[in-house]
Amino acid sequence: MIRFLNVGKSFPGGRSALKDVSFNLERGEFAFLSGASGAGKTTLLKLIYREIEPSSGQILVNGRNVASIPSAKVPFLRRSIGVVFQDFRLIPRKTVLENVSYLPRILGMRQQERKRLAYNTLRRVGLAHRMSAFPAELSGGEQQRVTIARALINRPEILIADEPTGNLDPELSWETLRLFLEINSKGTTVLLATHEHGYVRALGGRTLVLDRGRLVKDEYLEGHVGDIDSDSAEDVEDPARQPTGRMA
């Protein structure tokens, strides 16, 4: 589903953010991408939906070489990938509802349907009651959850989440992770970047570790649900142990 072949990325000025990264994520897999701040996680994710292009190597998404997709076709690649941006990227002049239902709208979905779909999606992140608010009227964690709802609304084949729990309290974080697992169990490939090792250790599974632009680990970790110091730990246990979707 997502294959990196010796991918390197350096930014103008010679700063090299990724070096020789190779991995393969199968359809339906769930993987963590971890690494210290500045290790290159966001850079790697941006390459997948072609916000940026690699300096070297090749990236295949769904069997297609991302670099060779003509720019007019890039939107169609992006429509199949739900992205939870680290910096949210909500449209300030649009309400929560409009932000979340933007893609359905340009896909030509009827207003009624669109609204229902947005409502249901927002309910899953616990924000159905803030539909008509503007992003500026929301807390950081609420904005983050709007971003998550927007990423999920079109049932994407791939979900890319960049630090999706960065602004959430532990309880909401676990709920969000559980949501991702649920999405994953329905077939969506999930790649989740986080530097919170706690969640990775607790849930286990495929983990890619970046260190200063290099992929230094690509391993399966055993989950240790005991590490979770939250009441919602019990809820997490079930989906975490489900092999469906989580293993390639």
């Binding site: 916000e51 007019a72 169609f76 992006r78 449209i91 893609l103």
Partner: peptide, 8 residues
């Protein structure tokens, strides 16, 4: 943003 979420 519109571009990033798939607007043509």
């Amino acid at each position: 943003v519109m571009r990033l979420v798939g607007a043509t």
